[in-house]
């Protein structure tokens, strides 16, 4: 899940309009940009979609780190295509957020100065090639869990962005599983690397869904608005149930001694991640927080002359065109 702990905004609107709005949502009628919507709905969506977009963009960094060092030309081309997709996903989501009355540059600035967050998962390093497989398999796998139901979200532009993203996301997860499978089926050293990557990425992946929110008022409001479809615990359980057999197929061990199939529940029982670590990471103290924000700030600053230059060129061309008319 790329949006974590999104607080819903209180809404202070005309009760009659609110009731009408809720009736539309309950009837699965999509809300479109120019439709009336409660202030809280608008603000919460900007926060959620913005955080999601930032995650796609920052998420390029840990993978981009390995493009030049991919083991074969084919893996390199695949990784390049995947990282390019992430840029596109960021763009679709910024586009959806912009329909709510915020500009992309405003959102970018809020990411760069730390006012807005991105997913905690991207503050972990990718130390070797096995990590790239693990990221595709586990991180994109966890993201899909959340994104598939969001295709049905109540806000039209967000829903359309999610549909487009989900079409591409399955490639991401499968290429990751394929890469880590190659290692799990390789030499003993390679298998050890695959196991080590799973060990390090398992709990951070479970954290992606955020802490339990079954008693959260924010989640209840977001679910009533259909901008959140499942609780964090539901999605985490689904992810574990899906991923454990995939790990078994690879001959890898999920690093949780208490992981056990529960016949009665029809689900796996598993250990919670260390939530104090999660809160520490989102506060800025993860292994890579500083690196990630420094890299994004540098890219933005270094790109300034390109943005200015192209705009100046476009203005000059337009002026010349007008003069010729």
């Amino acid at each position: 899940m790329y949006a974590q702990m999104v607080k819903s905004e209180a809404t202070n609107d005309d009760p009659e309009k609110l009731a009408e709005f809720q009736a539309k949502i309950d009837a699965d009628i999509k809300i479109e940009p120019k439709d009336w919507m409660p202030q809280g709905y608008r603000k919460t969506l900007i926060r959620q979609i913005g955080q999601h977009a930032h995650s796609e963009i920052v998420g390029q960094l840990p993978e981009g780190n390995w493009i030049t060092r991919a083991p074969t030309l084919e893996r390199k081309a695949i990784l390049l295509a995947k990282v390019q997709d992430e840029a596109g996903h960021g763009l679709y989501l910024y586009g959806a957020a912009e329909t709510l009355g915020v500009s992309r540059d405003e959102l970018t600035e809020m990411l760069l100065d730390g006012r807005m967050k991105y997913s905690s998962i991207f503050n972990y390093p990718t130390l070797n090639w096995a990590d790239i497989g693990a990221v595709g398999w586990l991180v994109d796998g966890a993201a899909i869990m959340n994104q598939v139901p969001l295709q049905r979200t109540s806000y039209g532009p967000y829903s359309r962005a999610m549909i487009r993203i989900c079409k591409e996301e399955s490639f991401h997860q499968r290429q990751g599983y394929d890469a880590i499978r190659k290692m799990a089926e390789g030499t003993p050293e390679q298998k050890k690397m695959a196991q080590d990557a799973l060990n390090r990425f398992w709990y951070p992946s479970l954290m992606m869904f955020g802490p339990s929110d079954k008693d959260s008022v924010h989640s209840a409001q977001s679910m009533a608005w259909k901008i959140k479809i499942n609780t964090n615990d539901e999605l985490r359980q689904k992810f574990v149930d899906q991923t454990v057999p995939q790990a078994e197929y690879l001959g890898l061990t999920v690093p949780d001694p208490d992981l056990k199939w529960n016949e009665e529940r029809g689900h796996y029982d598993f250990s919670e991640p260390d939530w104090s670590e999660f809160f520490d990471v989102i506060k800025g103290n993860g292994p890579c927080n500083t690196d990630r924000l420094t890299a994004r700030n540098k890219a933005w600053d270094d790109g300034q002359w390109v943005r200015d230059g192209l705009l100046a060129h476009a203005k000059k061309k337009r002026a010349r065109h007008l003069a010729a008319e």
């Binding site: 295509a81 997709d85 679709y92 586009g95 912009e98 359309r160 943005r307 192209l310 337009r318």
Partner: peptide
């Protein structure tokens, strides 16, 4: 969908990269 670009020519180039991969 939509995107940002300085002019129409760049908008077409970006659209090609973003929407027809």
């Amino acid at each position: 969908g939509s995107l940002h670009a300085p002019d129409a020519e760049m908008a077409i180039k970006n659209a090609r990269d973003v929407y027809t991969r």
